[in-house]
Design a binder for these strands. Structure first.
Lengths: 199, 199, 199, 199
DNA sequence: TGCTAAGCGAGACGGTACGTCCCGTCTTTTA
DNA sequence: TAAAAGACGGGACGTACCGTCTCGCTTAGCA
């Protein structure tokens, strides 16, 4: 018998990083595996030894990327201010790398229905409201009781992403609207009714 | 001066209809221009005389399709029932033709900003809440006063589209959640504060 | 009965001239009917009203061109000098418009076997030796008797065209060779044997 | 450093053979690259990886073909008979594969000067008179001394190719004419004057 | 002089081949 | 045996040109 040689794990990283960059730069559909291989400094065979096709590579790349997202939080001293700050932060995320990546993701879903099933929660994690924001508000007396922080992410991520998708401005007035007219009422309603199951 | 011959508009219709059918049947990426030409009974040249590439054809096809969307309304006898019915209706729209077409729209977005902008309102029109639904509720005493019907569309279209995008089920429980926890609180909030400017 | 309008003969000329120019510039295969129409300032329909296809147009153009070829002659005072002068003249013809046209002709034959059947004699007319050259030589006593002047054209046109085809130089040394070693012996042989039937 | 994979030479052969067959069957213009690929059992990409366009493929195919031409000779017992036999042989060559291929050569000439130059000698090799034919004639006393065998090829290849080009018949009468009136006088003249430099 | 058939330009049309690009697989060489 | 380099079969893309056609406009020649 002969010694088998394991796949070199440093290649995985180079390949997936190249993949992410190219999805952000050109979109999933326009991006080619040859380009990924070139940027990663590997050969196509090395890529296809690890994943079976383009969309599997994309899945792996997204998983790697979202695994690296750092949680973000801020304390402005007030509940509404915290929500607004998180909305602003998500607007920046959309306008940056993540937005372009999101387009790539959506495009990928078109070509490869199975691609992003498991990425749903990860995607909106950019708009995630940390539970301590709610806890602080309760402690400060701004909220009568606990509310479901996940509702914020659900509403804000969706509405802002859609608006960004149509290239409408994510300006201060719109963020005020999202927080005051959509997120806050929904959050307060969860408090009144004792929770929500987002399934 | 001499007469030049215009592009035959009956061809446009045949081509775009064939395009829509094939996108719905096989998806944007799998669909072939040759197949479109064959089904439309034209030649490829006739197609490329009108649009420069595949995605421009798709954009045109979707513009044509959305231009044909008929408004929809229902009266269940109660406000919540009406909202739920409209949410169900939008779920059907997404699961049908529109969902698959929406993906094509997102693909097109990269290169066709102005056309996409124009389609924004049309896209969410599937979730549009007709003003008379609100008026009926006010007359029945279910609402203390008028609320902004556009908030329904804004929240419901976004949240449901996102969920559909990630292929999570648009089942009854989720629709209840959207109506009760997100849409209704937001709608009622607009009533309390006298309107919203969605810009 | 009704009045019919005849085809405008001025168009014929413009079309065929444009055809000849374009064959010489780009070759028969590369030349397009659209380009002919554009240069002639007509429409394609006007062309196809006159001829059924590309090669018929080419036939007509060649016929028109060769119909315009002006006979050429010179008297150098000696038979060999006359032959050399005609060889030089044919070299110039090949290097000019006619050479490029000849290539077009040959290419045309490839695509359209029927194209140039009747053009054979016309083609070599550039190398035609006028009968008076022979008559003068006989009068001067340079030839013992009449020789078949057509042999000159047959040999010289063929050999020089082939050499030109392979882009070998048609220089003075080669022309001397053609005249002294090929044409003159063949011409004299016809005199000795009393004529040739070129069929 | 890493190993790169060379183009597979067995493909070249299959492609060029298929090309030759199809040129002979349908002509250069009618022949399709897809048909070549199909017959060669390769893909179009494999063909276009080797040559840039249709005519480069044709040139390569003809180079391959002419490289395989086998010299031909015959001994009829008499000089004139030998010449006639070689003329007949060349007529067959023209009417067969070579004639159709020659047209392709001329097409190629426009864009590939250097390759064509190289093929020049090969082309007329079909009409080449082997030196031993002359030597035998001298030994038999049919010729007073050595003559330049290359003159035969020069005259015969040119005159017959031209006549073939115009689709005039290469019948026995014409071959007699070529041998008796053109080739023999020119050959004998070289003997009288001691050689020719065809440069 | 007015009617009418046909010429004309412009260019759209169906069809077909071209040459390009990319996917996912396979082959060769080196380490 | 992994890795690089890249050739390979397959198949869609978008382009180009052919020969036909349709559309208005104009013009020649009969009435």
């Amino acid at each position: 018998m002969s010694a088998t040689r394991p796949l070199d794990p440093t290649r995985d990283a180079r390949i997936l990083d190249a993949m992410l960059e190219l999805v952000a730069e050109t979109g999933y559909v326009s991006m080619t595996i040859d380009a990924v291989a070139a940027r990663a400094g590997t050969s196509k065979a090395t890529i296809y030894r690890r994943w079976r096709n383009k969309h599997e590579i994309a899945v792996a790349a997204m998983a790697r990327y979202h695994g690296r997202l750092t949680p973000w939080s801020v304390d402005t001293g007030g509940f509404r201010g915290d929500l607004l700050a998180h909305a602003h932060r998500f607007a920046e995320v959309l306008d940056g790398f993540d937005g372009r990546l999101a387009i790539g993701l959506v495009q990928a879903r078109a070509s490869d229905p199975e691609l992003i099933d498991e990425l749903e929660t990860r995607f909106s994690s950019g708009a995630r409201l940390p539970p301590e924001v709610v806890e602080r508000a309760v402690r400060r007396g701004e909220l009568p009781g606990p509310v479901d922080h996940r509702v914020f992410e659900e509403v804000v991520a969706s509405v802002m992403f859609m608006r960004w998708l149509w290239r409408l401005p994510l300006d201060a007035a719109f963020l005020d609207h999202v927080v005051d007219d959509l997120a806050l009422p929904a959050l307060l309603a969860t408090g009144r009714r004792g929770g929500v199951d987002l399934g």
